[in-house]
Nucleic acid binder design. Structure first.
Lengths: 161, 161
DNA sequence: TAATTACCCGAGTACAGTAGTCAGGAATTA
DNA sequence: TAATTCCTGACTACTGTACTCGGGTAATTA
């Protein structure tokens, strides 16, 4: 299975956008800074998400990205496969030709697991992730954890790696 | 997440052993040949499985490997982690330090997914995979598919890659 | 006891894919 | 027109997988 920073960054960026849905477009540089993602790398991922119709972009000053659909209508599975090609964990990519002409001893197992993962990730929407995240932030501002602010101006310690 | 041929081969080899549980030890070369795995590579995996106490070995002519426990008592999760280290899909490896001091926007999601996969793979034993496989083989010998025999003497077309 | 069979172990290597960089271009706004 | 922002493709370093290789060591058989 492919589940790398590529997919993780994509979901993170989408949640970041979803948290600001309804407002002005969000600049790439802001998303990158907030989530510690290399801007040039993030650019590739956003391009893929745009090609898949998950986000829209506008250029020029004040431009940026925004969700193309409501957060309730975008699933995590959708985001990952947009940048990642596949979630399949079988060796043969589902072709059932992993052993001579037929499936190998464990083909069915990986097929089942793939299905399990798919169902799980299709069941989670950006809206849910936002809700979960907002809840966490409330706990934090109550003093449980130290944290960067997510809304409003922020900018410090860029050098910190 | 790490789910590569390493883990897949390990499970395949274990099922191969489980299908012959109770009989004489199975030689490495036989497992390798039947499942199209490089013998030298398989050796590494079996060594790891042995270190984890999942299989036992005996040397000399007539030697080979056998399961250390009953097939009902060996789960797929167990086999994979024996050769693969981890199934965790979070970026931070579960440490919750993926963003500054706290977890990143999507940490909880990956944690949930990891748990999902773990529960699934812990719920599948070698015994079940054997049963499933024997069923498939019955279908096959009824004429549904062409197939190599798995029990009994066999040996042909080694050159076929 | 010598030969054979088979497991044991560590080091080394080719390749692919990920993660990330870089340079230049095109659209939009002020 | 100047600044800002997205857009695109090519390029590179690195890591980890998927192997190979060469020498062991233990057990069995003749």
């Amino acid at each position: 299975m492919k589940l790398t920073t590529r997919g993780r960054y994509a979901v993170t960026a989408m949640v970041d956008l979803a948290l600001r849905a309804g407002n002005a477009p969000v600049a790439l540089a802001d998303i990158a800074r907030r989530n510690h993602i290399s801007p040039a790398y993030l650019e590739q991922l956003l391009a893929a998400l745009r090609r898949q119709g998950l986000i829209e972009s506008s250029r020029g000053p004040g431009g940026g990205y925004r969700l193309a659909r409501a957060p309730q209508q975008i699933t995590v599975a959708c985001v990952i496969s947009a940048v990642n090609e596949t979630l399949d964990v079988t060796r043969c990519g589902g072709a059932r030709d992993c052993h001579d002409e037929g499936p190998c001893l464990t083909h069915g197992l990986w097929e089942d697991l793939t299905e399990h993962i798919r169902v799980f990730l299709e069941g989670v929407t950006l809206a849910e992730l936002c809700a979960r995240n907002r809840r966490a932030m409330t706990d934090i501002s109550a003093g449980v954890l130290p944290l960067r602010r997510v809304h409003g101006p922020r900018q410090s310690s860029l050098a910190a790696k």
